[in-house]
């Protein structure tokens, strides 16, 4: 099935109150700012947001947080020089935080997209982030049991997409895009360019269109 090419507002219309939303980007690189703005206008709240950071400055994810739409953030690195929106909400007790090691965050989403029920991971063993989690010794090494993170929706940004939904990214803005695209029930990609099928060399497709439901040119 081809991806539905639509506006940002049409793309996010299915987001529900209380949904888990995977938001791509590392800092602002790869952040789907247009889709987030559309989500703010759409009005869904009580969201759980999964992203590497908890917003930078006043745009993108930070704007969604400032609008009071996010109940919980699952991320690896919330605290930054320009994460003042999150910091204030957190210190006021208005937002829940789950800190996950960066690689475990990526792998938990990868597992969701790949249909893996859970996995044993060496990261975090013996640290506060593994407290209360099941561990197992395999070949003499201790691992922590980690469960998938599945999204109701993924909002990602890529460079070029075709109407089949095939995506190509640009440089380090790729970051979480391919992992999140596979891990959500509804994946929406904003792209700089939409091209005809065949215009992207199949050898260079990074995210195959099977993972992408809606495509928005920005």
């Amino acid at each position: 099935m081809t991806a539905l090419v639509c506006t940002a507002a049409e793309a996010v219309d299915a987001v529900q109150h209380g949904d888990t939303v995977l938001v791509g980007g590392f800092g602002m690189a790869g952040m789907p700012v247009e889709l987030i703005d559309a989500l703010i206008a759409h009005g869904a709240g009580e969201l759980t947001v999964v992203s590497n950071n908890a917003g930078n400055g006043h745009t993108g994810l930070a704007a969604l947080l400032a609008a009071g739409r996010v109940r919980k953030v699952i991320c690896s690195f919330p605290r930054q020089a320009d994460s003042w929106v999150f910091d204030e909400l957190y210190r006021a007790g208005k937002i829940e935080l789950e800190v996950v090691p960066q690689g475990t965050l990526a792998e938990r989403m990868r597992a969701a997209g790949a249909g893996i029920g859970a996995f044993y991971c060496p990261t975090g063993v013996g640290t506060p982030l593994a407290e209360g989690k099941e561990t197992r010794v395999i070949d003499g090494r201790t691992y922590v049991l980690e469960f998938p993170i599945r999204g109701d929706v993924a909002l990602i940004r890529a460079h070029t997409g075709d109407r089949m939904g095939n995506l190509v990214y640009r440089k380090t803005a790729r970051n979480f895009g391919p992992v999140m695209a596979a891990a959500a029930a509804l994946t929406i990609a904003e792209v700089r360019h939409i091209v005809e099928p065949g215009a992207i060399d199949p050898e260079t497709v990074v995210t195959p269109g099977i993972y992408v439901d809606r495509l928005v040119a920005v």
Binding site: S76, F77, P78, Q80, V100, P101, Q102, T123, G124, L129
Partner: peptide, 21 residues
């Protein structure tokens, strides 16, 4: 990764993955 001080916002990033990897 964390001072453990009350009020400090925990942020781990890739430190734990790098340390064991």
């Amino acid at each position: 990764w964390h001072t453990g001080e009350p009020g400090a916002i925990p942020a781990v990033g890739g430190a734990m993955d790098l340390a064991i990897g």
